[in-house]
Design a protein around this nucleic acid. Structure first.
Length: 207
DNA sequence: GCGACAG
DNA sequence: ATCTTGTCGC
């Protein structure tokens, strides 16, 4: 497979990413994540009420695994299943919270940016481990630009990495993620989505 | 060439 | 991500 073509597509998508707030009042936030079972990938979306942080809708979709895991190209492995799951959501979602990175990425196009731009939805990336960049205090910089921020949540020793994906600024993305922290290390949308796809994996294993 | 490397 | 038991800690 020619990865160069994918790298070029990422650069094109990155140019379309808007790093300023472009959305209205937030009512629903959808968390997106994936799990695997055999040669299948399961994408899941959990819609959470932004005020109560309670889940109000669940949707999922499965695909045959076609792409390997390659750092920097995660979207080509998981974005398809995530978007398929999100398309099944009935509710009018305002913001997407994706498991992975946004513009804090080698080519400024992590999975949150990839999904956000393709669906033209405000999107935030929430990573659980370092990908790239230099740490400038709590911020993560790339070429002198702030592209993400480390957040020590849930009293964890390890930080989570928040970066804007599309139609949102870094500060607002951080603000929304903090708002969604209840007690765990991850914000509710992403935490519930992970819990959801993990439970689905077990069901598919016995089916 | 060497090291780093989301999920 | 996934394979896996018990175990330390709040």
């Amino acid at each position: 497979m020619d990865l160069d073509r994918l790298y070029r597509e990422q650069e094109r998508l990155a140019k379309r990413a808007k790093l300023y707030d472009a959305f209205g009042k937030i009512r629903y936030v959808a968390g997106l994540d994936c799990s695997y079972t055999g040669d299948r990938i399961i994408g899941g979306a959990v819609v959470v009420d932004y005020e109560t942080l309670e889940p109000v809708e669940y949707a999922h979709a499965t695909r045959t695994l076609k792409f390997p895991y390659i750092p920097g190209l995660l979207a080509y492995r998981e974005a398809g299943a995530m978007m398929a799951a999100f398309r099944k959501v009935r509710r009018d979602v305002d913001v997407l919270m994706v498991d992975g990175f946004g513009v804090n990425h080698p080519r400024r196009c992590g999975i949150a940016t990839h999904v956000g731009v393709k669906l033209d939805m405000p999107a935030i990336g929430v990573g659980k481990s370092f990908l790239c960049g230099e740490s400038c205090g709590a911020d993560i910089c790339q070429d002198g630009e702030k592209v993400g921020r480390m957040l020590y949540t849930g009293g964890s020793k390890r930080p989570i990495y928040v970066s804007p994906g599309h139609r949102i600024s870094l500060d607002t993305a951080v603000e929304l993620v903090k708002h969604c922290i209840v007690s765990g290390r991850l914000p509710e949308p992403t935490r519930l989505a992970h819990e959801y796809v993990t439970a689905l994996k077990k069901k598919y294993a016995g089916n």
